[in-house]
């Protein structure tokens, strides 16, 4: 774990114009993991993509953190199903010319 890979939550709040409490709510529902780095609540930089997505869903669709959790879980399921469908589609290609 390298401290330079973490961004203080307070800095993210300024960058995205959101309240600190919003990040804590996301942490509470398990959407993000806030860690104390040098006594400062911080987030790993790899979480930035998902944080931006969460902020957009919250701001633009007016969905609360619990709702975002549901949306993200469903999207993961959709993604999994898409991959399964792709695998099945590729498998079917084996037989396409036979009929």
């Amino acid at each position: 774990m390298d401290a330079k890979d973490f961004i203080p939550v307070i800095q993210l709040c300024e960058q995205y114009s959101v309240e600190v409490s919003f990040f804590h709510e996301l942490h509470e529902v398990g959407l993000i993991e806030i860690r104390p780095i040098e006594n400062t609540p911080s987030l790993h930089q790899d979480a930035l993509n998902s944080i931006e997505k969460i902020i957009r869903i919250h701001r633009e669709l007016h969905v609360n953190p619990e709702g975002i959790d549901v949306v993200i879980n469903l999207l993961e399921k959709v993604d999994h199903l898409k991959n399964e469908l792709l695998k099945a589609h590729n498998r079917l290609r084996r037989y396409e010319d036979d009929f």
């Binding site: 997505k53 957009r56 869903i57 633009e60 669709l61 969905v63 949306v71 999207l75």
Partner: peptide
Amino acid sequence: LARKYHPDV
């Protein structure tokens, strides 16, 4: 409509 078509969902 935004909830239905939002690119993130």
